[in-house]
Structure formats: C-alpha cells, structure tokens
Design a protein around this nucleic acid. Structure first.
Lengths: 122, 122
DNA sequence: AAAGCTTGTTACGGTACCGTTTCATGGTGA
DNA sequence: TCACCATGAAACGGTACCGTAACAAGCTTT
C-alpha cells in the first residue's frame, strides 16, 4: 500500500502541488495551519487544542490563533465539550472537507502529470 | 513514469510530509517561499526576479522579499547579470541543495510509511 | 543624448504571525 | 469547601509578510 518515489518524483510532485496550491487556494494558509487542518481532517477525532499542540509540537496559542483564522474561513469550528467544559472540541465543516478534498485532487492531478524527463538536478 | 495516487494516499502523504517538514525544518518558510525555492532548484536556470514572479503569479516585491529571507538563510544567492546589468540571476547554493534534498527525503520516507488502512475520512 | 521602457529594490501602511506571559473558567482531591 | 491543577484564550512586544506605489539604475531607440 505504501508508495515508492524516486527523488525527482517526490520533489516534482511537491513542487507542482505547491504551485497549484498557491494558484488555486492562495497564500492564505501557513505551513503550520496546513498541518493543523490536515490533522483535523485526517486523524480520528476528537481533537482538542491541547492534543493538537502536543501532536504538532507547538504551543497552545499557536493552535488557538490558527483556529481563529481557519474558523473565520469556515474551515473548522469550535464546540465546547459538555463532559469537561474546559475542553474545546474542534469539529470539521463542509467547507473544510471540500477544501481538503480539493487539495487531494491537486496532488493526484500533479502526480498523474509527472513528466517522463528527470526534472530534478540540484 | 507518472504516479497514480488514491485520495487517501495523496492526502496522507501530504499530511505526513507536512508534519515532518515542520518537525525537522520548522515554520520558517511560507508556502510561497517554498514554491519559489523549489522552482529555483527544480526548473532549469537561469532564474530572474521577473521570471519567477510571472511563473508563480505574484508581484516582483514578493520575489525580492523572499530572496532577502532565503538569502539570509543561505538557501539562494543573487548575482548581477553582466550582459544586462538590470537583471539579477538567482543562483543555487550548497546549503539550498541540501535543504531541497532533505525535503525530498522526507517525502520519500513518508511515502514508504503510508499505512495500509484508509486514514482519510472527511 | 534625451525620452522612454525594463529591471529589481525600497517605502508605506496595514495585517497576521511568533513566543512568552497572564488570565478566566472549570474540574479535582484533601 | 477551598486550595490546586488543567484547559483554552487574551495581552504584549516584536517580527515578517502583504499589496500598492514610488524609485534608482540600466538598456534602447531615434
């Protein structure tokens, strides 16, 4: 199930997908925000501020601010945990799911487009 | 030569590689800077400010600032074009080549590690 | 050589991120 | 009940990005 990439393929894929990401989505998300968003949508819930901070190796305010920003974009939403009201559960949204799906489409499309030539020579 | 990814693979790879990128490299590069850096190292030279701006669909000051930042990190360097002294040719550096190579290693490693289970349910 | 175009840089005001610290709120254990 | 701990948010000063506009320096054209 794992995929085996050659260096030129790996970097070519990253390069192309990053360009497409910028073209379609814009520069509005930082790498950290991307990581947080992907984690919320790909790792099994529930997600909390503390849990995300620990998993990503950042401080809690980083998560709080990222949730502020991405919440304003409707990519995620916050819900208080009723069982422990100190907790905030981060929920997925329809917009966020579409966003992540679009990102996946970009990667898949760029993977298919990978050229035959070896474009990576550093 | 192209690679065919399923959605869960594409997003899983992106997710894992983004996390590793943050863990190893840190949050010091924006998505735009990543795109610029990869373009410099993967697309055939010569690279100019204007050319990069056109290719990436951004304004020239964005490129100038990115070159300032990445130059301070020794990831790229600027050289005046002797034939047309208005031009600046962006050159690769040893540090930058190592950086890009490390990024490739991360992607390859995460591709190999992709799990059997379908981790993507949005 | 003087006007005009091209190239890359700098300046400006605004916005958003960063890490650290402080805080309000809610649960927990003696 | 009353310290005490845990959680997430807000405040603070600093830094770096953003887009637009203005700019200096170098070709080019007549």
């Amino acid at each position: 199930m794992s995929i085996d990439l050659r260096p030129s393929q790996a970097l070519g894929l990253w390069h192309a997908a990053t360009l497409e990401h910028l073209r379609i989505i814009g520069p509005d998300l930082t790498i950290r925000q991307m990581a947080i968003l992907l984690h919320i949508y790909l790792a099994p819930p529930p997600h909390t501020v503390r849990g995300l901070a620990a998993r990503l190796g950042v401080t809690k305010p980083v998560i709080t601010r990222a949730l502020d920003t991405m919440g304003a974009m409707s990519l995620v939403k916050r819900v208080r945990d009723d069982r422990d009201k100190r907790n905030v559960i981060i929920k997925r949204t329809v917009e966020g799911a579409l966003f992540v799906e679009k990102l996946g489409d970009i990667i898949i499309a760029e993977g298919r487009k990978l050229p035959d030539r070896d474009g990576a020579r550093a």
